[in-house]
Amino acid sequence: MRRYQYHFILAFIVLFALACIYLTLGYVPARASLLYGPPARTLSVSDRIEYSTRLLSHGAILTTPLDPNGMEQSFRIEPGESIYSVANRLEESYIITDAQAFYDYVVYTGLDLTIQSGDYTLSPALSTIDITRKLQDSTPTDINFVVLSGWRMEEIAASLPTSGLDISPESFLDAAQTPPQSLNFLPASASMEGFFLPDIYILPRTTTVDQLLESMARNFSQHISDDMRAGYTAQGLGCLSSGHACFPCRT
């Protein structure tokens, strides 16, 4: 009888062990792969099991936004910054719910190796997984548009295709024939030729041609006195951006 009980207990232990092995080596990784995609190829078998288990333990944290009504905010990743630091700062900035869940996900997927330094616009209305995907693209939200001293409209227009702005040279030249409201002291017949100050203009990538010209016009207006404005209006003169030398506005 005792021998029978011993064999029964031994068989139970073996079956239990086999079930645990199945769950560990089979079900857990398969379930994690189904929910979060395949693991990184660089992970060892033991790491795959470990991180698969971790992901499943996080439940819905990875797929649920911290704040569905949250506002966008700027977030910068410094060159050489560790994933631990990025994860912790995301949580401290109230962008994600849990730094450990973020870390486990990016290591499991291998995305920790492709997150780039740069400036991002992130929102707690996005899930942790969606935020991780956004961190794969470090394209800046703003660009520096440079106007060099002495450049005429044609030269500014020629620089647009490589500027990062979605503005064609043709649309720029056409729109520049009508000065923005910021230059309302100019004669009606004047174009913007000569009213582009050499400067570095920090602009969103989504800037339109009208917004670009308005930004340039405001910059010019901020650098001239009221007496100069009155002089342009009275004499119908334009002012070259290089050296502020004056010439009659074209008709």
Rank of each mutant, 00 (worst) to 15 (best):
Y36M: 04
M228V: 13
T178K: 10
E170T: 10
L56G: 05
P29F: 00
F102H: 02
T251E: 14
D130V: 09
S159P: 00
S138E: 11
F16I: 10
Q222P: 00
L173P: 00
E214F: 02
L111Q: 14
T208Q: 03
Y94N: 15
E193S: 05
A157Y: 09
I21V: 13
L35P: 00
S221D: 12
F75G: 03
V107H: 07
P169H: 08
D47N: 11
T24Q: 12
R218E: 15
T109V: 00
I9F: 06
G118R: 03
F196C: 01
E214I: 01
E214Q: 12
T53S: 14
F195C: 00
T251R: 09
T128Y: 01
N144G: 04
F172D: 09
L197K: 02
A87V: 08
R31P: 01
K134G: 13
D142G: 02
S57C: 03
I156C: 03
F75W: 10
T207H: 03
T53Q: 06
A175C: 00
G236T: 07
R48F: 01
E170H: 08
L237Q: 12
P38N: 11
L62V: 08
G26N: 04
T141Q: 13
L183W: 07
L122G: 02
I200L: 04
L66P: 05
A188H: 08
L25G: 03
A30R: 03
I224L: 02
S44P: 01
F196T: 04
S82F: 05
Y120V: 02
F220G: 00
Y36K: 04
F185V: 03
N144K: 12
A175Q: 11
P39R: 10
D119E: 14
I49A: 05
S57W: 11
E50M: 10
Q116F: 08
D227Q: 14
A190E: 12
R89F: 11
P68T: 15
A101I: 02
E214A: 07
Q181T: 14
S82V: 06
P180T: 08
P65V: 09
A234Q: 13
T207K: 02
L56D: 02
A125K: 10
G80R: 11
Q177P: 00
P204E: 09
S242G: 05
F196S: 01
H244W: 13
L173R: 14
R229Q: 08
V106C: 00
S149W: 05
E170P: 02
Q73K: 14
P38L: 14
E81G: 02
E193A: 07
T251N: 15
A158P: 05
L56V: 01
L183R: 06
A175R: 12
D47H: 06
F12R: 06
A32E: 09
L90R: 09
G238Y: 06
S182D: 08
Y84V: 10
I49L: 09
R89E: 14
P187N: 08
T206N: 12
F196A: 06
S171G: 05
R3F: 15
R2W: 12
C20S: 13
